[in-house]
Nucleic acid binder design. Structure first.
Lengths: 204, 204, 204, 204
DNA sequence: CATGAATGAGCTTTCATTCAT
DNA sequence: CATGAATGAAAGCTCATTCAT
């Protein structure tokens, strides 16, 4: 006889908890958000939290892990086999540029993500994880650029790695600014210019 | 050494405290760094801290305030009247690009700064302060660009505000990446490319 | 003994805590008594105190609130429908006069009560609460006097409000003196005289 | 050569300090008023406080000591050799009844006095001092009553000690009530009634 | 004597985690 | 598995007192 509680049930609970955690972390920050906040937001009991996660940090880490997976999945999903390199690059920009504006929840996500980034810079283990993650993103973009260089879409005398890095530097920097200035500044035009800066450098 | 201590003495003490605070905030983050950490680092007593600052938050805010002042002073100092707009822009890049590599202390500073940025995004009052600060930086850079456009150094069909914003997005984004990747990635080349991306857009 | 504890269990805990708090406040005064004192006296943990009350002040206020309720309940209980006004007045004297001598705990209560009174005089909000409380006591006694005046037991040319006030002034003043002189001075005779002073004024 | 600083100068300084201390104790209470409050109020330095008094408690005790002296001096001063016992009693009532209404400062004095009373009830040493003080006041009043009994002004079958005690119980109780109700309640009439209650008992 | 910066024990309160039921 | 009361280490901050100048 299998356990009373199915695996899906448990996954569902974990997911609910993660969503509540994100809302709380987004609102108050990782340190300031309390387990009680998460409990209140999720409607579950305090014990339940510790049945599904072994610590507050565990929740945080799981949250970030899931997000990276989800983010990459979205990149791959949005590509079709017949896309050119510049179309892919444009797609990548579009996905990310639209991110913080779409939904409230997504916008919150940005602050949790960036806060984690800062925290990681102070913890060797997290730092290493973050480094790998950055490397994945960079490699992914670098591959697109190289593909474009091979097909002749892009100039060949551009260092694809450094430009890939610049691509994410521009996006991450923009996220940072959006956090403070979301209503005040016309970020749409910034994202357009960013794309243009990258493409300027690539077009033959 | 109590009675009628000179004003400089007190300024010096405050400065020492601020330096200790920065070291602690840099190492553990604002929330995790404790007053006792600052006390231990500075060698002063707990009471002394509260003789000079009224709360932990006060220390934090003072730290950031001083830094902004210092940062702007440095910009202005590094300019000479005979510089062209592109020389000024180059100078601005150089100052900032070299920042996180020079000294350990300066590098720590970046993490404190960025952490404050995230915190500000969750606190309306701080957010407003940060917005003003961003605006100052943007306006400052925008003026240089416009100056270049007037002298004919730069193309006139570029929106100076958006490009000024891009300038700082690139720098702040780079700071974010440096935090995680300072040894692993050749940031010199990134900063060079960043400058080139901006100048590409500007040169006639 | 955590999950789904009965409401009575929680009430019991609160009551225990309040009793410990009163013992501590009585011994050292509100300001000087520490949460640790209450913790030590109650045998609970420091956290437990904050599970049941939100602050030291909350404990204090609850303590006083409960006491006023209890005190009034006792007045009403001790009255029977067939009592004359002077019997009621006598009863009121008896209840209060016996109060500080009966039990150690009750005697302590007097000092906590009077300390609160002084504190209230320095805090507009508490002052207002206290004023209402005094007014309740006065009105209650005034009604008895008026009842006696209507039945002809008491003289009609006495201001019932002022005499009701005098009644409590005598009692509260006596409590004050008892605090200092409980063994040294024959308070029984004082309370007898007090009653006589009031009745002298009332008897036709 | 005598010390630069005359004895009067020092007495003056002490007096100033005591006045500031009383203002602070009256406003916040003994525990909550800080040495810094007194320093701020007096305009002196923190060191000065400790030059003239050895501790905060010392200030408090001196304050009370001085007050008792002053209070008794005032009683004696207000009596003339040709006064009858009932005139003296009336005088005593008048002095005390007018006390808390006259000046703001005097009114504050009442709260400091009563707070000390409560504190004394928790400290054997202070309690003993207070007991002596009460005894002095009682004996003083008792002497007047006995004087009246001897001259035939007052009834002889009244216990002068208990009535003297009642006299002060009424006054101290009234002070307590005034603290809370100073504007709301017509205390003049209460004091009048109080006097009448005492005289009723005494007149032949 | 005067000064006021320095001290540090001690205070209230918070909160991640545990575990008896 | 679920619950939520219990725990106590640790945090920020206060303030009476000291003492070098």
């Amino acid at each position: 006889m299998p356990p009373k509680v199915t695996e899906e049930y448990k996954e569902q609970k974990k997911k609910e908890l993660l969503e509540s955690a994100m809302a709380c972390f987004a609102e108050k920050g990782y340190q300031s958000a309390t387990i009680d906040d998460i409990v209140a937001h999720s409607g579950m009991s305090k014990g339940a939290v510790y049945n599904y996660f072994k610590s507050k940090e565990d929740i945080y880490l799981t949250l970030l892990e899931e997000a990276t997976k989800f983010s990459f999945a979205r990149f791959h999903q949005s590509f079709t086999p017949d896309m050119s390199a510049s179309e892919k690059l444009h797609q990548l920009f579009t996905i990310n540029a639209s991110l913080p504006f779409q939904e409230e929840e997504k916008r919150k996500w940005v602050s949790v993500q960036l806060e984690f980034w800062i925290n990681a810079s102070r913890n060797p283990e997290l730092k290493e994880k973050m480094r790998e993650r950055l490397s994945m993103y960079r490699t992914f973009t670098q591959a697109i650029i190289q593909e474009g260089q091979e097909t002749g879409e892009f100039r060949k005398d551009v260092n694809p790695e450094v430009l890939a890095e610049s691509f994410w530097v521009l996006l991450d920097g923009a996220f940072l600014h959006v956090l403070i200035d979301e209503e005040a500044y016309p970020y749409k035009s910034l994202f357009q210019l960013s794309e243009q800066l990258i493409l300027n450098e690539l077009k033959p």
